[in-house]
Design a protein around this nucleic acid. Structure first.
Length: 797
DNA sequence: TTCATCCTACCCAAC
DNA sequence: GTAGGATGAA
């Protein structure tokens, strides 16, 4: 028997043991929310509720699986499971995202109004392709420079549906400058809608709305759902949107057994229609709802908690919680001020290397606002041979070769899947957009002579169509089908990607692996759109790089948060409207509350931008400026690359930018290993500003007052530095490719045995030469690393 | 009509 | 780096 009362605190206990009726759990960051859900799952099962009657809606399938796994372990260890003969388990619990759940119901009870044979779920790239197709088709915005990009249009369409507002209204509210194009955008949206219906395609928003429509139109389906899922739990409820809340209400019924878990302070998805009001209005929607608050924080040390509480203190909040810590001691968070975003990357990486002494790689994370911001850090990590995994960025299933292969599979399933057809057709020489459409019409009308005529002209395409016909003739498992497709596709891939096809081949093998666990092709394909399989395997020997959004719900021993400057964080998109700005603040809160022991905030003093001639000064993020100075330690990078501690005595909040000159000097104490080790070290490219001798915004070095920035409610924030908006710095080197290192002076080792020195890892023994230019080296304390020769200095013995 | 090439503006977050 | 528009040749 699980000892719920002893293993949970009183609030958690109440949540885990209240099984009937509606319950709202307000769970502060790090308050053992997951633990509570896990125990409640176990409890439900112990009480004899069949697993198949439980629906667990979470933010990712991964977190659903994690909870189910833990609940299963809990049950295994309890005596009750044995008493009941082990029949109880959590294996039958349905868990995943709203979208995945919606698809599972929709494929079972097909909604009315879809012509084509099968329903295919579109992923982000499919959606962009489809909208572009509609836009071109209508000839809207052609050659008009002021017309928004397809991506932007997709964003507007999705926003209008998620917020359930007219697209004109969305434009009026959030993109006033596009108002002149509102009519055209509206027409594209309408065409895109018709396009999906015509081709049997569902985008993310369709999944939710079509499920709602189905449940409202078909009483039998609603009854079936209610009878089947008698206990529903929804995690991260603060990030549900309107239609999701209605779905919850529909599925549970007014007095239903529904538990919603969330934290209004962590609502960070308003941009996709999430509405904090959902969590605030939960008691109205379910009048009998009990409200339980989890306020004790088990995750973070007190100094980290103090800082995160300070971030939250500035925010208006409905469900007031006072988080108190269960963990004593710990270091104060650090604010590090690198000279530029380029040197920031070096500092971040050396900090990571330091943390690697006390934490396993997967317990260290670098977090950032937007995917592209980790670029420099990735380059630096590659240089040092530190493995990392990046979350939030290009999806695995959106890689070209994967999409190619999947297009065949999609056509087998749904012969009129136009996006897939276009993809396949475009691979053939001599076939462009026009020809593709003609051929598609021919195929649709089933005109045999026209078809064979067309095939004669394009032998490659003919081979594709033959393959598809062959595949359609007999039933296939996802695996056998993919194997056949891949065999057919391989020569194409080798031709199309001459330099890296072997790596892509590996990716396809991975796809095969994933497919192996599916029996139904349509489920397999839709799952790829709904959940990134790349996130499945957790790599325990890789440091984590993640967008803050993707970091939701996770925690690490050490968290490094980068690019805390205006325009980047808060995002430049979020400074005009107060509500957007508040969401940025919550995002900052979410980021910082991910840290258990160590939190480092990086505030680069300048940003490198190619377009604007080098480095532009950057203004520290208001989220850092507003922090009371006694809550953190502050370090400045010196011109020579070392770090110096800011004089705490002068440490009034916000006033000390550049004031650290007279401080404790050197580093040592702050934990950044050796103080000035960057000086003249080989292989560290200095930022251009250094070489050029000009340091915008830092000249003079001290006491420059902070540029005032106005925020929503006040005047428009001035555009600093000439209005550039963070043009991507040109790559100084691709990942894994050595940058020219101006100072290295040709120190590449030539021998292959013996010892070498690395500027971060120190002295190590060369274990193996990996031609042409890498070495496997064993560094005491760090273990085996693969390092490029350029970054090693051979010991001349 | 397709394809190669150049050029420029543009990048926010995710199911 | 990428999307996608403009351009001109095949």
């Amino acid at each position: 028997m699980i000892d719920y009362r002893n293993e949970l605190n009183p609030a958690q206990y109440q949540a885990a043991t209240t099984l009937e009726g509606p319950v709202l759990v307000i769970a502060g960051a790090g308050s053992g929310k997951t633990r509570t859900i896990v125990y409640r799952l176990a409890n439900l099962v112990e009480q004899g509720v069949p697993a198949s009657a439980i629906l667990l809606l979470t933010f990712t399938r991964k977190s659903a699986r994690e909870m189910l796994h833990r609940a299963g372990r809990l049950l295994e260890h309890s005596a009750t499971a044995a008493v009941h003969g082990g029949v109880h388990g959590v294996t039958g619990v349905q868990g995943g995202t709203f979208h995945a759940f919606a698809y599972s119901v929709l494929r079972q009870f097909r909604p009315s109004g879809y012509e084509a044979g099968d329903l295919t779920v579109m992923d982000g790239a499919d959606i962009v392709d489809a909208v572009r197709h509609c836009k071109d088709n209508l000839g809207i915005g052609k050659g008009d420079r002021s017309f928004p990009r397809t991506q932007n249009i997709v964003g507007l369409i999705s926003k209008s549906r998620n917020k359930e507002l007219d697209i004109d209204e969305v434009i009026r509210r959030e993109a006033f400058h596009l108002l002149v194009h509102a009519e055209g955008i509206g027409r594209i949206a309408a065409a895109y809608h018709a396009y999906r219906r015509e081709h049997g395609l569902l985008d993310y928003d369709d999944l939710l709305f079509e499920l709602e429509r189905l449940l409202r139109e078909r009483a039998d389906v609603l009854d079936w759902c209610r009878a089947k899922f008698r206990y529903i739990m929804v995690d991260e409820y603060q990030d549900t949107n309107l239609v999701q809340a209605r779905l919850v209400h529909l599925l549970a019924g007014e007095g239903g057994n529904i538990m919603a878990v969330g934290d209004d302070a962590q609502s960070i998805y308003a941009f996709r229609g999430a509405d904090v009001r959902n969590i605030l209005d939960f008691p109205k929607l379910f009048p009998a709802a009990q409200i339980i608050k989890l306020e004790e924080n088990y995750r973070s040390v007190q100094p980290v908690l103090d800082l995160t509480n300070a971030i939250l203190a500035e925010a208006p909040q409905a469900y007031r919680k006072k988080l108190f810590a269960a963990r004593e001691g710990g270091d104060r968070p650090q604010v590090v001020r690198p000279l530029s975003d380029l040197t920031q990357a070096s500092l971040v990486v050396s900090r990571i290397v330091e943390f690697l002494r006390s934490y396993p790689p997967h317990d260290i994370a670098v977090l950032f606002r937007a995917g592209y911001q980790s670029y420099h850090v990735e380059v630096q990590l590659n240089k040092l041979g530190v493995k990392f995994r990046k979350y939030g960025g290009l999806r695995y299933s959106e890689a070209a070769h994967v999409k190619d292969v999947l297009s065949y599979a999609r056509l087998v399933l749904n012969p009129l899947d136009l996006p897939a057809f276009q993809r396949i057709a475009a691979m053939s020489k001599g076939v462009g957009p026009k020809t593709t459409l003609k051929l598609y019409e021919v195929a649709r009308q089933g005109n045999p002579e026209a078809a064979s005529r067309a095939c004669l002209r394009y032998p490659e395409l003919r081979a594709d169509l033959d393959l598809l016909d062959g595949l359609r003739k007999r039933p296939h498992t996802p695996t056998s089908l993919l194997e056949e497709v891949m065999e057919h596709y391989k020569p194409r891939m080798e031709a199309a990607f001459p330099d890296d096809w072997p790596r892509r081949q590996q990716g396809l093998e991975q796809l095969l692996q994933i497919a192996a666990s599916y029996r139904d092709l349509d489920l397999f394909i839709s799952d790829l759109s709904l959940e990134d399989p790349g996130e499945e395997e957790e790599n325990r020997d890789s440091v984590v790089l993640s967008t803050i959004h993707s970091a939701k719900g996770l925690e690490w021993g050490a968290v490094l948060l980068i690019d805390l400057v205006e325009e980047r964080f808060p995002s430049r998109h979020a400074i005009a409207r107060a509500e957007d700005f508040e969401e940025e603040r919550r995002l900052m809160y979410v980021a910082c509350t991910r840290a258990r022991d160590h939190l480092c905030l990086f505030v680069p003093a300048s940003l490198y931008s190619r377009g604007d001639g080098g480095n532009q000064p950057a203004v520290p993020s208001p989220f850092v400026r507003e922090l009371p100075g006694h809550l953190f330690d502050e370090m400045h990078e010196s011109y020579s690359g070392g770090l110096m501690r800011r004089d705490v005595q002068n440490g009034q909040r916000g006033a000390g930018f550049g004031g650290g000159r007279g401080g404790a000097g050197g580093v040592g104490g702050g934990g950044f290993a050796q103080g000035n080790r960057f000086d003249g070290a080989p292989g560290i490219p200095r930022p251009p500003m250094f070489a050029e001798g000009t340091v915008p915004g830092r000249a003079g070095g001290a006491g420059r007052p902070l540029p005032p920035t106005a925020y929503p409610g006040g005047t428009q924030p001035g555009v600093q530095g000439g209005g550039q908006s963070g043009a991507q710095p040109g790559p100084q080197s691709g990942p894994g490719v050595a940058a020219p290192s101006p100072l290295s002076g040709g120190s590449a080792p030539a021998g292959q045995c013996g010892y070498c020195t690395h500027r971060i890892f120190g002295r190590g023994k060369i274990v193996q030469h990996l031609p042409p230019d890498k070495y496997r080296v064993n560094f005491p304390g760090f273990g085996l690393k693969v390092i490029m020769a350029e970054y090693l200095t051979l010991e001349s013995d």
